[in-house]
Amino acid sequence: MSDTAMTPPLGVTTEPLLARRLLICTVIVLISVLLFAPLIAVFSEALSQGAGAAIQSLASSDARSAIRLTLIVATIAVPLNAAFGIAAAWAITKFDFRGKAFLITLIDLPFSVSPVVAGLALVLLFGANSTFGAWLVAHDLKIVFAFPGIVLATMFVTFPFVARELIPVMIEQGKAEEEAALTLGATGWRAFFTVTLPNIRWALLYGVLLCNARAMGEFGAVAVISGKIRGQTTTMPIMIEMLYNEYLSVAAFSLAAVLALLALLTLILKSVLEWRYSALLAATRRH
């Protein structure tokens, strides 16, 4: 399939050379300005007073706690959302039930609601002024302005990523393979782990990576619910904003560079996995 797409026969590209060059140059300029320039700016600003200053700013206890908090939040939120996303996509694509369209809309809700609004909603729900919040306070369960609130806000904002990646793939695959597994004597769980999961693994990986990137980068909802308590409830994006507002640009951009590196790392991880399994992919995708 890809062979023919990559080497078009002569005569397909009939535009004059100048037009082609112009289009290619436009793309390169756009990509440079939109993607690479900001990334380079972040790193050069971080290193503007030398690598020593950058590392020193990262070694501060506030920066270290922000990095730690972001990583822990992602470690909790991403696997949970992966599990929920798989369950939701499974239910939506393999079964027919009343209210399915409503459920799909509900899954998309975090995409359409502004993260700040989501954060405020959580504060209203769990804050000390609500009945539920008062009950929580009475039982010494802190959610707002604390770690559980940050996890909740992050999970809310990143909920659609995995399900949204999986649903189209699972619709396309239908349920014949699962049914085949069942007629061969497999239990539902076995069919899920040996047939469904291998079939969706690339979409799942992609969804998880997107979910992870957003979980680490989420600002709005977390900014509202965390209360921005320095060294306690500040995640990396919030710490970056605080440092920037305090004119500590080396510290701010150093932390931003680490956040960007984490995102790049997930992308590299995905490419490596794809490259590693490219032969198997080619064999199983042709259909």
Binding site: A176, E177, E179, A180, A181, T183, T194, V195, P198, N199, L280, T284, H287
Partner: peptide
């Protein structure tokens, strides 16, 4: 023993 219309073989 069930043979499906498009066979439903396990691609992976």
């Amino acid at each position: 023993g069930f043979v499906f219309q498009h066979y439903a073989l396990f691609k992976h």
